[in-house]
């Protein structure tokens, strides 16, 4: 058996197994044992806007407390850019939009879970949770003139329904 033949068999085995693993691990299958082992994300999940696409807009606002105690007006961090024709070629903002969309949906889920556990109390997001820290890091990185502490506010907006944006969460002040 030549080296080429051995290589051919190895490639067939590797890619064949990879394809079968991908096919049985797609979203929608109830039995999905391989996904939890796939720590490197080698098995694709071909969701592509399914089952429900992101339909809400999230706005991240922040304000700073200055050293003299004054508080600045709310400013929008990472404003959503207007869709332009050239985004088909160049759109570096899409990563941060995807991240914010992802973490803020994480927030919404966390708050919904907290509300279902304690329906009578106002749900509060943990300042040590991943989504909270991600938003805090993101707004801390926004260029600003000064300020010793910052606070963020997240608004969610359903543009299709045409309603006003509603607050999802307001943080405490955190030192910069």
């Amino acid at each position: 058996m030549t080296a080429h033949n051995i290589g051919f068999i190895v490639v067939c085995a590797l890619l064949g197994s990879w394809f079968v693993a991908s096919a049985v691990s797609q979203p929608g299958w109830r039995w999905n044992p391989l996904r939890s082992w796939d720590v490197l994300g080698l098995i694709p999940a071909w969701r592509m806007f399914t089952p429900r696409p992101d339909t809400e807009d999230y706005y991240v606002l922040y304000r700073d407390r200055l050293p003299d105690g004054c508080i600045t007006p709310w400013s929008e961090a990472y404003p959503i850019p207007r869709r332009r024709w050239f985004h088909v070629f160049w759109n570096p903002d899409k990563h941060i939009r995807k991240l914010l969309s992802h973490v803020i949906r994480g927030f919404a889920i966390e708050l919904d879970e907290a509300a279902s556990k304690a329906p009578d109390s106002k749900p509060i997001a943990s300042p040590m949770s991943g989504p909270y820290l991600a938003v805090l890091y993101a707004i801390s990185n926004v260029p600003r003139l000064g300020g010793e502490a910052t606070q963020f506010l997240i608004l969610r907006h359903d543009a299709f329904a045409g309603s006003q944006p509603i607050p999802l969460i307001a943080s405490s002040f955190h030192r910069l």
């Binding site: 806007f49 696409p53 339909t55 807009d57 959503i80 299709f160």
Partner: peptide, 14 residues
């Protein structure tokens, strides 16, 4: 769903 996505600012064309 197509309409709601396209109405959004984040991933839409208003």
């Amino acid at each position: 769903f197509l309409i709601t996505v396209l109405c959004s600012r984040t991933f839409g064309a208003r």
